[in-house]
Amino acid sequence: MTCPRCDRANADRRRYCGGCGASLEHTCGACDFVNRADDRFCGGCGDGLPELAHARVIAAPAPSGSELRISAADLRALLADIAPEVVPQHELTPGTGAVNQDDLDRLFGGAV
C-alpha cells in the first residue's frame, strides 16, 4: 500500500512504512477494526475514517525521488521559523537549582 505520509509503496504485510516509519494501520474509533492507513471507510462497521494525523503534519512535500522524515526537534525548529507564536522561545535560566512550575510554564507556554 502507499504510505499516506511519504507516498512510498509498501508491501501489504508491513505495519509501518519502510520509508518514514509511519503506521500503515488505521484502527476504527467506533468498532476497533484495523484498516489500512489509506482506507477512507471502516471495513468493520462502514463508518467514515478520520484522516490520520501523521498524513497532515508535514508541511513540505518531499522532492521527487527522495524521502522526507522529520524529527520532533526539527519540526519544532521549523515551526519556530514559520509560526513562532506556537513555539515558546524561552530557555531555562542557567544554574543547577531545581525548576519550579513557574519556570516550566514560561518555558513551555500556557502559564496560568
Binding site: A72, A73, L92, T96, V99, N100, L104, L107, F108, G109
Partner: peptide, 17 residues
C-alpha cells in the same frame, strides 16, 4: 525537578511539563 530532565523532554518535543 532537575534541569537535565526538563531539557531532555523539551528536546524530545513534549508539549508541557
Amino acid at each position: 525537578t532537575t534541569r537535565d530532565k526538563v531539557v531532555a523532554c523539551q528536546k524530545a518535543g513534549v508539549s508541557h511539563y
